[in-house]
């Protein structure tokens, strides 16, 4: 008796589960179709984590220029955002920290029109305040006994690091290859690492908790940030206006203040 009940339960569960999934998908579509009224609209922007500060500022400017419109952001690693959009996440705008991730969406026909490059970023050496290890160049990072932390080659900042290493002929022996540039920065801020390779904008955003040591070889790996409207965006017009603001003088001023360079 008991066995039969136990055997039936997962089957019921699966049937219910599948039915539930189908139902909720349809519900989502209905919602999306019902929402775009011109008075109160929500623009959903998926942006690389490194754009958080600047995009929030541009977003509030956009909201005050467009009464009734609210801009909602999802900030994460570019490849995470790509995966979410591929799985049907309702994004109107996608801003990537590198062209590689944007190209994935273009290849999947998930981008409307052509992506526009709106900013560039380069690597710099982040060191604790006062630069206790006296680092002045990329080659200094190869000194013995120095805890150097970089991004793993699989993530954008790490592939930039690899490019810099290849271009300069300097091979780093990091104590850790982190998942994201934020992890690298935090290891330097916490004092665990003596130096880390991060973006210029990360050092700028970290205030006086770290210092940046620029190095010439960073020009080998210039990271370009593209932005585009996602195919089937429920707010395609607003998306285009938002992109225009990012690439226009308002956006470019905010980006420049955060340390981004023009493409």
């Amino acid at each position: 008796m008991r066995r039969r009940v136990l055997a039936v339960a997962p089957v019921i569960a699966l049937v219910l589960g599948l039915a539930g999934c189908g139902g909720s998908d349809q519900g989502g579509d209905d919602d999306a179709a019902a929402s775009p009224t011109p008075e109160a609209a929500t623009l959903t922007v998926f942006a690389a984590a490194s754009l958080m500060g600047v995009f929030e500022e541009i977003g509030s400017q956009f909201e005050s220029d467009h009464p009734g419109v609210s801009v909602e952001f999802s900030f994460a690693g570019s490849s995470d955002l790509v995966a979410q959009i591929q799985q049907g996440a309702p994004a109107d705008v996608f801003a990537s920290a590198d062209t590689k991730n944007m190209d994935k969406l273009v290849a999947d026909d998930l981008i409307d029109g052509d992506p526009v490059d709106f900013a560039t970023n380069t690597l710099t050496i982040a060191v604790p305040p006062g630069n206790p290890a006296g680092i002045t160049s990329l080659a200094d990072l190869t000194q013995d006994g120095l805890n150097v932390v970089v991004c793993a080659p699989q993530v954008p900042c790490g592939s930039a690091t690899t490019t810099v290493e290849e271009g300069s002929g300097i091979t780093l022996t990091p104590v850790s290859e982190e998942q994201s540039v934020t992890d690298v920065l935090n290891k330097v801020i916490a004092g665990e690492a003596d130096a880390g390779l991060v973006y210029v904008t990360d050092v700028k955003g970290a205030g006086d908790t770290v210092e940046g040591v620029p190095f010439d070889e960073s020009s080998n790996a210039v990271n370009t940030y593209p932005i585009a409207t996602v195919s089937g965006a429920s707010q395609a017009d607003l998306a285009k206006q938002f992109i225009a603001m990012v690439t226009g003088s308002v956006g470019q001023d905010v980006l420049a203040a955060a340390g981004f360079a023009r493409p």
Binding site: S79, A83, Q154, V155, S176, E177, E178, Q179
Partner: peptide, 20 residues
Amino acid sequence: GSLQGVTRTLPLEIYLQRET
């Protein structure tokens, strides 16, 4: 941290492989 053979355990490897 995360370094192959030193600190990158299976869950960290999974999280990293997801990127590429």
